[in-house]
Structures are given as structure tokens and as C-alpha cells.
Write a protein that binds this DNA or RNA. Structure first.
Lengths: 198, 198, 198, 198
DNA sequence: CATGAATGAGACTTCATTCAT
DNA sequence: GATGAATGAAGTCTCATTCAT
């Protein structure tokens, strides 16, 4: 790694987190050793400790980064046509490498074991719900969705469907089938939005 | 533990698996040590090896048992009133301890790391789909569901919603809210069943 | 195993020692577990402790028995024709199973670790030397061997050759080649017996 | 231990192998624990694994090194006066510490249990035979040994005698008596070399 | 900055031995 | 006499972490 590059430290941390994220997902947090991660980047274990206090912090930063990525992605949703918007969101997810696409599910496996991860995952979740809810509120404002619908409830359910389909993909469900299921599901929710009240 | 009891060995294995299942879920497979498991039961590490060849086999047997439990539970579904049936299934899940209720999600976290677990999870998944599909087929026969619906596709989506809601519960979603979301979701799928074709 | 047989205990011990001897040789003393030995005979570990205080005593008894066997075999040597006698002794060794034929070499590997085994091996060795020496003395008396020969020295050297050839056999030397080497060696010793003085 | 020394790694491995060799011989391979070996050198267990993949590889490398040492030693034999040469070889062996002098016998105890050790021991053995045979062939060329002698057969027998005497030394035979026996034995073989044909 | 050497705690696993039945 | 259950000590090995260079 070069030395005098401005922002070099940031770059180094990103490189490390990228490797770590993949290996954590592929091997599991415990099973992926600091050595594994270092080897992938071409440095020695000791180096990792120049950038992250310990393995747990590395995990935390990886989760934070990946959850933020998802949030940014959601932030780009428009309310113009929510179905189209959802479909395009899902399509963009399909382009992600596995460790990013399935990061939420991975993180969920860690929340029982790690308070900090639990906290950040909960906060992110809350943010996702808010973002989607506000889009739905806009639709209600435009009269495109039944006023009876509880936007939070609807968001929660959409997210649940989304996550459940991701789980199925981890078990081998094809991308096309997944897309179609997601579309059909979301559409059915929208057309029955009045069922989702509190 | 008593000694020459008939079926004693089976009982001992069950006791171990029960503890293991819980600790695997709570701490993670790697993080839960054989010592932890043994201590919970009140025996020493060595004893576990009288009943299971090694830790991996213990994991496998736990998965097998828990996935079978879910399958049995699904097997009791009737097609008389599928919505009611689904609700009652979900209610019964709420009575389960966390490690059983969320076992599928736990198992999913292990499939990248363990071929045998992957295999049995896939097979179970396939069985779940078949069971639900056949109930839906019966409904189609009775004309209660649109003939256009692809029963497999519909099952997959219901399962996805179910799993997604479980994920949300792991993050703190309340039981009542979860139940209502599940009911609303399933109902919307059924009323829009024609959207689920292949 | 039957219960009321007279001398039953002795028989049982022999059965155990036979298995133990073989497994000790094939797997090594440490590597052969009490379980292995028990399984071979078709009993459980616990049973072995009815007949031998512990594993170390079992080893000791096995050594004692096998070394005694060798001594008995040597005792049958006649001085009529010492070369023929030696050849026939060697031939009879070839009929033994490996764990008996090579027992001395095996035992030697244990003497660093076990005082009791060391002691009995040394005593046996001394006996072997005495037996052979006395045969040689008889020959000297008959004038068939140079009076200058030191019978003890000659015995020691013959034994060394014998053991060295056994070592070679453990490494794959064929039985016929071994026999021929043994014969040629002994003959050359006898014809140069005057070289072996003290 | 110093750090960035050139060839430091090689030195460290040698230190470890030296300790391991001695303890393997004194206590037996199984009975000598990695902890024992580490303690002797003044490091911790973990350190050993920086240099050797596992205990079995450590054993293998020790055997390889020691057998090579013997081969080098044999390589220095000259044919000028084979008896003198043999005596000087034996004398040099007497200076070795036990674990090196008796290494062959130790290794033999492991061949039943370890394929890799078996292989390298067999190969070394073959090399020893070749080296000695070629010296004998030179003697035959010079007419110092009967042309009828089979040089391989003669070598095998000399080696056997040598090893047998070493075995006796392990049981307490004195160095001087051993030397004299070796000399007398070899001399008798040479003077009766025509007895060793194939 | 980076490394390579070392550590030490802790994990899994084996096995001789004991003992109630 | 025999067993099956249990123990606990000990052994191999891994790995996060530290630190001198």
C-alpha cells in the first residue's frame, strides 16, 4: 500500500472492510480469522490492528457501512410509481455481491451475540421503515392508496416479504422467480392496502 | 441421570439436543462450547461424546429434529379454511421458545459453512412447499381459489412472508403486530391469487 | 464368556493378553485403547479391569508372557549341532504372528518409559544369554568350538545378529533372505569363534 | 529469541527438532506432548505451530533429518580399509547423544503407525545398503574380498549386526564390549565373505 | 506503516478409570 | 461377573491480540 496518499487511511479501512464483509458472510464471523482477512488483502494480521481496535469493532464497522448502503439505496426511491420503484430497487439488489445483498440476514444472526450490532441493526431497521412509510404517505396524499391503510404497517409487511424472499434466494430460489414473487406480492399488498390498518 | 431405564439413551440425546438447540441459537454455533452445553445439563463435556460423535453431528441432529418438527406442524394444516388454518399455525408458533421458532433463520446462517446442514435444510424447504402447495391445490379444486394461481408460486410467497415476519420478530416486532401483518398479508395473497402464476 | 468353568479366570486373562499384545504391537501401547482391546474380544472396557488393575499392568503381563515364551523356545535348543539348532529356532520364529515374533523390539521401545518393563526385559535378556552360553560351553567341552572363544561374548553377538535381522524383517526383508543371512552369519561366527574373546 | 536474523526461521526449526527428537526418544512419540517440547525450549505451545503444521509433521521432519544424518555419516566411509572404516564409523556413533544414536530403532517403532515415516525409513534403509554395497564392490575389485560374495547380502548382514548391537546397548551393553563385538563380527563376516552369496 | 514472532486462553476431543446396577 | 454411564485430566490445535524492530 502506498504511503503518502491523502485519505489513504480511509481507503485502507475500506479495503479491509470489503474483505471482511465477504469473509464474514461466507465463513461466518467466528470462522473467518483475522489471518484470513489479512491474507486476502496481502498484508499481515498485525496491520489490521492499525485500522481497527479489534475484530469486534471491525464487525461493527462492516455492519454499519453495509446497513448505511441499504439505507442510501432506499433513499433513492420515488413515490411516482411505487410498484415500479420497488421493482427497480429489487433489480439493483440483484447486482450486488452476495455478502451485500444478504447482509441483513447475516447481521440478524449476530444480534443475539453482540449488543452493538443489535443496536445499529434496530436503528437501521427503524430508518428503513420510516423511509418507506413516508413514500406511502405521499401516495395516500395523492389518493393512489386507500386512506385506511396504515403506512407503517404496510411498510413493515413489504419489508418482511422482501427479506423472506431474500432468505429463499439464499436457499437457491432463482433471481427471476424471486423478482416475480416480489412484484406479485407487492402488487397484491397495494391493491389490498386497506387490509393493513392498525 | 438414571441408568438402565428403557429408552434412556434416546432421552439423554433429547435432553442434550434441547440444550444445544437453545445455546446454538442464543450464542451461535461456534460460540456455544461443548462445555456450555454440558454444564447446562449438569454433566461433563466427555458425556456429550457418548451420544454424539462430535459437535458437528450434534448440530446436524439438532437441525434435523427442529426442521422435522416444523414439518409435522405444517402437516396438521387443513384446507377447510386456509386463512384460519394459517392463523392457527402462526399462533402455535408463538408458543414455541425462540430457538425453535427461529430455527429456520438460525439454520440459514449455517448453510454457507456446512454442507450437511445445507442439504437437510433444502430438503425440508422443499417438503414445506409441497405440503402447502397441496393444500392450495385442494382449495382450487373446491373453487375457493382462482384456477389461474400457481400453487407452488403462491406457497413460496407465503413462506417468504412468514419468514420475513419472523425476521422482524427477531428484531423486536411484537407478537400481536406480527400476527396481524401475517393475517393481512396472507389474505391479500389469497384474494389476489391470480397474480401468482408462473 | 461362560461362568463356571474351572480356570476360567486364567483363560479370560489369556484372551485379553492375546488381543492386547497384538494391538499394542500394531497400534502402539498408547494408541491402542482399552476400548479397542475390549471390543476385539467382545466385552466392554469395564470388564478388563476385572482382570488387570490397569493398562500398565496389562502391558507388563503381556511383556512377561511373551518374553517367557521366547525363553521357553530357547530352552529347547540342543547343543548337538548348534548351527542346525539355530536354524530350526529361527524357522520356528517365522511361524509366529508378528506381534510375538517382533515382541522384543516392541518391548525395547517401551523400556525408556516404563521401569517395570525395563526390569523384566533386562532379566529376560540375561536369561537368554545364559541359555545360549551354556550350549556353547557344551560345544567347547566337546572340542567343537575353539577354547579361546568367550561363550558369553559369542552369545551376545549371535543375539545381536538375530535381533538386527528381525529389525530388517520389520522393514520388509523377505523370510528366505533373512533365513539365509542368519545362517551365513552364525556359521561365520562359529568358524571364527576364536575372534570372540574377552 | 532474536527476530530479524537471517536464517532465523531455519534456526528455530532446528532448535525445535532437536528438543523434539530427544523427547520423542525418551518419552515416546505419543507420550511427549507439544507442551513438553515447548517448555524445554522456553516457548509456548502455540509457537511450535508457527514452524510445524502439526505434531505428525514435526515427527516426520525429525525422522527425515536424523536419517539423513546417518546417511551422511555413512557417505564418509572409505574402502581403503573397510574394517578400520567400520570401526571408526562405530566410534563416531558412540559420541552421539542417545536419541540420535538409537534413532533408527526409535523410528522402527513408529512405522506400523505412520505411513510417511515408514516410507522415509524404507528409502533411507535402501540408501544405506547401496552405500555400503558400493564400498564392498570396490574391495572386490581390489581382490580384497572374495568375488563370490554378494555385496548386497553382505551389507544387509553387517547392518543387521550393527543394529542388533545398538539394541543391546539400549539394554545396557557397555560401549567397549559393543565395540569389540562389532569389530569381531565384521571381521568374521569379511573373512567368510564367500558365505554370503545369493 | 508494516511485519513477523510470540503468546495464552480456550476450544474440541480422547480415554483410562470408576462405580452403581 | 459384566455392563453402561459418567468423569476429568490431558492433549492437540487455533486464533485474537500484542509488541519489538
Amino acid at each position: 500500500m502506498p504511503k503518502v496518499v491523502q485519505g489513504y487511511r480511509k481507503q485502507a479501512m475500506d479495503t479491509i472492510m470489503e474483505s471482511a464483509s465477504r469473509l464474514f458472510f461466507e465463513l461466518g464471523y467466528q470462522e473467518a480469522s483475522m489471518e484470513d482477512i489479512a491474507r486476502e488483502i496481502g498484508v499481515t494480521k498485525g496491520t489490521l490492528y492499525l485500522y481497527f481496535k479489534n475484530k469486534e469493532e471491525l464487525l461493527y464497522e462492516v455492519c454499519k457501512k453495509n446497513l448505511k448502503l441499504l439505507e442510501d439505496s432506499l433513499g433513492k426511491l420515488t413515490s411516482a410509481d411505487i410498484l415500479e420503484s420497488a421493482k427497480s430497487f429489487f433489480r439493483s439488489e440483484l447486482d450486488l455481491p452476495d455478502h451485500l445483498r444478504f447482509h441483513w440476514i447475516f447481521a440478524l444472526g449476530e444480534i443475539n451475540k453482540n449488543q452493538k450490532v443489535r443496536k445499529i441493526l434496530m436503528e437501521s431497521y427503524e430508518n428503513y421503515v420510516k423511509i418507506i412509510s413516508s413514500r406511502i404517505e405521499e401516495l395516500k396524499g395523492k389518493g393512489l392508496i386507500s386512506g385506511e391503510a396504515n403506512s407503517r404497517r404496510l411498510s413493515l409487511t413489504m419489508i418482511a416479504l422482501h427479506n423472506g424472499i431474500l432468505m429463499s434466494m439464499m436457499q437457491g430460489l432463482s433471481e427471476t422467480e424471486a423478482s416475480e414473487m416480489f412484484e406479485a406480492g407487492i402488487r397484491s399488498f397495494l391493491e389490498n392496502s386497506d387490509k393493513f390498518r392498525k
